[in-house]
Write a protein that binds this DNA or RNA. Structure first.
Lengths: 188, 188
DNA sequence: GTCTATAGTCCGATAGAC
DNA sequence: GTCTATCGGACTATAGAC
């Protein structure tokens, strides 16, 4: 039998998400989150660097996943298509957690600071994918442009997926948005 | 004769920029900025909503300028080219203030929180341009994709202009980056 | 686990300008 | 008198230091 209740991190996450929904992100002090989880404020900061990290993770897992997907793509595939493939793969994973994604997005959309952090997360992913392309021998500015174009597509497709009803197909929406981007940049 | 020295806001801005350069953004307390300007901390917050606003303005002037440039573009011009034209116009304005832009960028690049705010500023501009395109009758997702693609180009071109030596031509770099984006999205 | 620096907010007071 | 820019101090919350 352990000295503490198990899964402190999980309890903190659950308490935080509940309170962010109930009272809004900046109306919930960290002390309140800790209290609901039966822990102290200090313990919260041992598990999460700040209040926002509960919603955004540590900032390395997803960029690494996507960078690896890009790196493993055969060199015969054009940079923009390597990026598209990586994002479609991510789309497959995320759409299995649609309920959680919706709840998370409601919290983020309600708060300017969180929207800001989300942009930072996307920027981190962009840098990781551009780096992966360069490792594959793609030159600048092609690497950065391909990665940035991919994130543009992701943003548009994800917003559609979030606001859609039923069980929309995210990878399919990503493919469709890529086609639209190609059309738009061609000046049509 | 007035009770206070004139131009409190200007003095605060100058003091803030000096200190951000000297000691770094998060090593300069607001109280220090106010002290150098001969004012109190409280007064700083009457002029700027937070420490970062000194570097980024109020967040409406530039988006409005670019949205208007888009709206005034003839309907015969494709959405992506309307966005390109607006950004080139901005490029002409900004390159007359190259020294200030360089100093500002050094401060921003040295601090994660400021890089985050810069992304938010770009997102605000994106939304403004997408809205301007919709006012011109452009449908979604074309409007958002054209605006987002424009910002991608701007980021790449601006980074090049900042790191270039001599007197590089920013509008020219923006045009060149647009050509490269078209090539990348075409899958070349 | 406590202690502290800093950000940012709120309220009331004050002195000159109009 | 009203308006506006300032000051002073108390207050909460975040986050990091010890």
């Amino acid at each position: 039998m352990s000295r503490w209740e198990p899964n402190a991190r999980g309890r903190l996450e659950q308490a935080a998400l509940e309170l962010y929904v109930e009272r809004g992100f900046d109306q919930t002090p960290v002390a309140e989150i800790a209290k609901r989880a039966g822990l102290t404020e200090r313990t919260f900061y041992r598990h999460y660097a700040d209040k926002r990290e509960v919603l955004f993770g540590d900032g390395t897992t997803l960029p690494t996943l996507l960078a690896n997907a890009v790196i493993e793509t055969p060199d015969s595939i054009a940079p923009i298509d390597a990026v598209a493939g990586a994002l479609e793969h991510w789309g497959e994973l995320i759409q299995e957690r649609r309920a959680g994604a919706l709840r998370r997005q409601v919290i983020i959309d309600a708060n300017a600071e969180l929207r800001e952090r989300e942009l930072t997360k996307l920027a981190t992913i962009t840098l990781a994918m551009a780096g992966a392309l360069r490792e594959r021998g793609v030159q600048e500015p092609t690497a950065s442009l391909a990665a940035e174009a991919g994130i543009v597509v992701l943003k548009v497709a994800y917003a559609r997926w979030i606001s859609a009803t039923g069980s929309p197909d995210l990878p399919q929406m990503i493919r469709e948005s890529f086609r639209e981007l190609k059309s738009v940049t061609a000046g049509e």
